[in-house]
Design a protein around this nucleic acid. Sequence first.
DNA 1: ATAGTTACAGAACAATATGTATGTTATCAT
DNA 2: ATGATAACATACATATTGTTCTGTAACTAT
Lengths: 179, 179
Amino acid sequence: MDRRQRKTRNAIFQAFTRLLERKTYSALTVQEIIDEADISRSTFYAHFETKDELLKAMCTDIFHHVFSNEIISEEHHDFSDKDSFQDHITHILCHLQEKQQTIKGIFSGECGEIFMRYLKEYLYQVFDRQLTDREDIPRAYRLNHAVSSFAETVRWWSKEHSEYSPDEIGRFYLESVDI
Amino acid sequence: MDRRQRKTRNAIFQAFTRLLERKTYSALTVQEIIDEADISRSTFYAHFETKDELLKAMCTDIFHHVFSNEIISEEHHDFSDKDSFQDHITHILCHLQEKQQTIKGIFSGECGEIFMRYLKEYLYQVFDRQLTDREDIPRAYRLNHAVSSFAETVRWWSKEHSEYSPDEIGRFYLESVDI
DNA sequence: ATAGTTACAGAACAATATGTATGTTATCAT
DNA sequence: ATGATAACATACATATTGTTCTGTAACTAT
């Protein structure tokens, strides 16, 4: 990728992150992002068609970093062993912690919803293979519950309780949800 | 309240609900709501200052209906009895089912996030009094987990699995979450 | 080093949305 | 019946959006 493109893309991402700390996503205009990133109008539209595309691209970047080694390269793993699944969870949480600053910004404001949606898409892949069977509750419900609870755990952790370690958060989650 | 005001307010709510079924909240403009409701521009702004205020008002209307008999008039109840808390949950779910059509519309699109936020505000009041204590997990985490899981259960139910009864949904929830 | 390619800046553009203010007409409550 | 008030049509300044154009600077491959 051209260095100029990288620089511009980065400038946009950073401006976007900064702005999200003080304004909600929907209240944010493309014009403000352009001004904050200090680039030309035409340059922005050369990179992203809309504000939504920008958010999508940023989420994809983050999750690719967080999940690439989890889903893609370890597809052959099975986590039938409970401890190894716990490690798996902790591993994901550690990656998320690295991106904490950015994620915290995204969560302020209602665009957190879009972030959560993308997060859940990845989580479905992780949990679908792991979920055990129970006869009294539909599998679809339990999968949704496991995924949603994990995503909400991440939100809770990032927004208000960053003082906990990935290990602790993983334990809270696994003791609260029946996988 | 003046009959004319009621009629206009209703027209706006219905137009809003209809539009949310085919467009996302952020992509929706005030102009479109005005056109769909078939009212004058100035009339809309006489009722609501912004699009956000409109959504807020609609959520408040719904939750006042759902929770009024739960929180406000039954504040003296305690649900130390497990069965009575189950009834409580089922009661809330029944009320939500009545508003199902509207809620389903609200959930389509990212404004579901705002709806969820308001829903959770009410739920915090319900669950805060009910939650038991556990030493190994912070109360704040468990409260957030109970509330989020219930809200996600409602979302799951409304969006994709309306075939289940309030009783069943209440059972799924209570068997999945440790209150 | 040079030639060809690509990205950026700056400016202008029409189209649309926003929020407010005006005076007029219709409807309401009593 | 009448005073109060909600809704109406219209117009307005302002801002945002997305596109297009041209000239310039930075990069890449040979």
